[in-house]
Design a protein around this nucleic acid. Structure first.
Lengths: 175, 175
DNA sequence: TAAGCTTGACTGACCGGTCGGTACTATATA
DNA sequence: TATATAGTACCGACCGGTCAGTCAAGCTTA
């Protein structure tokens, strides 16, 4: 807290004018980063033209690139994950994370759903499962990149998405 | 440390007969869990018969199920991630994680590589990218399950794998 | 000058690590 | 066999450092 106050150029006591506790401040940072990532990553999909496949590729690029740009903050994400497992802060963080993941999955789900309705994607697919896996993949590729400088999350995700899109479009080939 | 000693039914000082510091103990737990997960998840793939696709499905089931069985320890994983971002312990944990991910990716990569050589999978694919995404997906689906009791990682991963396998096998359809 | 804002020295709970000491076993010696 | 010595495992009271949170004193502003 002393270090934060010093960095902010205020006295330690002043922090407590704005936050009731260190945990409150920590949670506020979590929400701030959460919104920052969400708004940076989620390009206005509906505004974007093109096929569902094209938009999925665009979303992939946007998510991976924007998180890569703030890779220096990635350690924070891990701190937040840990917070969601700490007995004291668990509830708050767990709830927030659950909601954040649900929201993000919902966006991707609707994009895939639309692809099915348009006839681009096979109807045999469960949009929610694909969305969850994609969201997870973004998370995890960035995590692997954090551990390994040699790892290329953008290339990897693009390669992967190409294959996935072939699978999604399978029905078309039967026509 | 006092609590750990109490739980172990030994005195606090005794811990230091076996570990030099709290961090050393923590790292030992990390290595223990690391091996536990690796050996539990990695079914003897080579011993397993069947096509590459079948073995990929088997691996998927094995990984997801075995981690689900030790879900109560999942919070530990998050603590370890956080440790890899903490300034003091960073190096050790980061290195270990990097290696663990590389090892696991290598297993999956070779499985996919084999599928390509056998002609099951399209040669247009980059095995490493697919492997990284799969490994990431397992990680991230379990993470989402940790946050959300309603989330079904096994079902999700199976659904997803089906679509992915269609994409991977695409070349075959051209024959 | 009064009200409100800001501050950083201070407090007390907490915790990792230490150390003097006990107890028990194994080996060597007489 | 009895005794001495050495090695090993164990213990928990204690120490010193750390840090979130407090509050009386100083400062600013109207």
């Amino acid at each position: 807290m002393a270090e934060i106050a010093a960095t902010a150029g205020i006295g330690k006591g002043t922090i407590y004018e704005y936050f009731n506790s260190k945990e409150d401040l920590f949670f506020a940072v979590f929400e701030w980063l959460s919104h920052k990532i969400a708004s940076a990553a989620t390009v206005r999909i509906s505004a974007l033209g093109g096929s569902a496949a094209e938009r999925l590729v665009a979303l992939n690029d946007s998510v991976v690139c924007s998180v890569l740009k703030m890779m220096d903050m990635y350690s924070l994400v891990m701190e937040f994950w840990a917070a969601s497992s700490s007995s004291v802060m668990r509830k708050r963080f767990k709830t927030a994370f659950r909601q954040a993941y649900r929201d993000f999955r919902a966006i991707v789900t609707s994009l895939i759903q639309e692809g099915i309705e348009r006839g681009e994607f096979t109807s045999g697919v469960n949009p929610e499962s694909i969305a969850a896996a994609l969201v997870g993949m973004w998370d995890a590729l960035l995590l692997q990149a954090w551990f390994d400088d040699a790892f290329e999350p953008l290339k990897t995700s693009k390669d992967f998405l190409v294959i996935l899109l072939v699978g999604l479009a399978a029905e078309k080939q039967k026509l």
